[in-house]
Design a binder for these strands. Structure first.
Lengths: 219, 219
DNA sequence: GACTCTATCTCGGTA
DNA sequence: TACCGAGGTAGAGTC
């Protein structure tokens, strides 16, 4: 990784046009060729950047980065305060715990929390509009489409509504109940769900984890 | 801005749990207190980060960052290769051209591209659910709600559907046509739009810019 | 503070 | 490659 601290101005042309007047900034050039220009505030977003794959040409006081999609980043260096290169090697990468996929996995193992007698039919049940997270049947045999979210918001209700509309066209499934299952559900999402006859279930991630049959046996 | 290059491991707990095994990385500590940990690949996203406002406590070989939302980032420094601080000052910030707001501006000037005789009634026409980008009337006087996007996706269709549902309750407007106008429109969005009777119009940003009356007069 | 929506979204998965 | 969906989305604007 190459770290340049310099007074510079930057122009980007591509998906839109953006320009950055002169100031002192950090320019990060990474091993894979991608570039980010950071100011001294706001952790996340670079002011300007260019992702790999791209081509970096250095000429005089200019850094010109172009990519196959005809995007172009031009950095004019006006005063370089430091320019150092560090060898870092491969990164082993991040492991995450608690994303939507884990919720789905856990809920698939314990569908009973959606109601006494509920059993799993299929995960990622396909429809024309995309896969339903879980297809279940309740204690009386009625089909349930379950949309799982970490945070239940209005989008999730819309998504489930679209699936339900499609699933209810299928005579072998109809009528299909809808359940939005999430760790927290926003009042607005709850209201919209109710107005469409969609049920809301709040999930307790640690609770679900505790109910996994394989883990129960350990204690 | 403080730049630390170090062999380190990182743990984040908060909205989820994430952990990063030992490797050499760049740790950026910015003036506003926010922190980002970068590997030597992938321009945009830090591996881990913590936005302002937060509290940084440095103790021995640990950097512990906590914020009011009970998120916590712990960086264990195992070998520090460099640790430098640079003064950068305020950044004048980025100016952009070609974002959705510009599309809206241009389309408001040339509503005719939505159909012969179409005229603008109002930009940002308010509804209970938020403002409709453009309210127009077509050549025959029928109202049109226009949702403008750079990229037309399924969310845009949902958004416009909600607006249309509200607008059609208004006797002075009803019936209201819906148009999704975007530079590119995804097939799924197009399909959903069609099933809801919403029309799709593809916009050419440079073309629109060329049609602006004030610019036409220049040539 | 809560809500809404844009984004050069990024990133990962899949067909 | 394009499409689709999740994200610790972030960030800006509004109320």
């Amino acid at each position: 990784m190459r770290l340049i601290v310099a007074r510079c101005s930057v122009e980007y042309t591509g998906r839109l046009d953006a320009s950055l007047p002169t100031a002192v900034r950090l320019i990060m050039v990474k091993q894979d060729g991608c570039i980010a220009v950071h100011a001294d505030g706001g952790a996340y977003k670079p002011l300007n950047w260019m992702n790999a794959p791209n081509t970096l040409v250095e000429a005089d006081d200019l850094l010109v980065v172009t990519n196959p999609k005809d995007e172009r980043l031009v950095i004019r260096l006006e005063e370089v305060f430091s320019d150092t290169t560090v060898l870092m090697g491969e990164d082993p990468g991040l492991t995450k715990d608690g994303v939507e996929a884990h919720l789905q996995e856990l809920l698939a193992l314990t569908p009973g929390v959606l109601g006494e007698g509920t059993v799993l039919v299929q995960r990622e049940y396909p429809t024309e509009l995309g896969p339903v997270d879980l297809l279940c049947r309740d204690g009386t045999g009625v089909a349930i489409a379950v949309e799982i979210k970490r945070r239940g918001e209005i989008d999730g209700v819309e998504q489930l509504s679209r699936y339900l509309e499609r699933l209810n066209r299928d005579g072998t499934l109809r009528p299909v109940r809808g359940i939005l299952a999430a760790q927290v559900i926003r009042p607005q999402a709850r209201a919209l769900a109710q107005s469409r006859g969609i049920e809301c279930v709040t999930l307790d991630y640690d609770g679900l984890r505790g109910m996994r049959p394989d883990e129960l046996r350990l204690f």
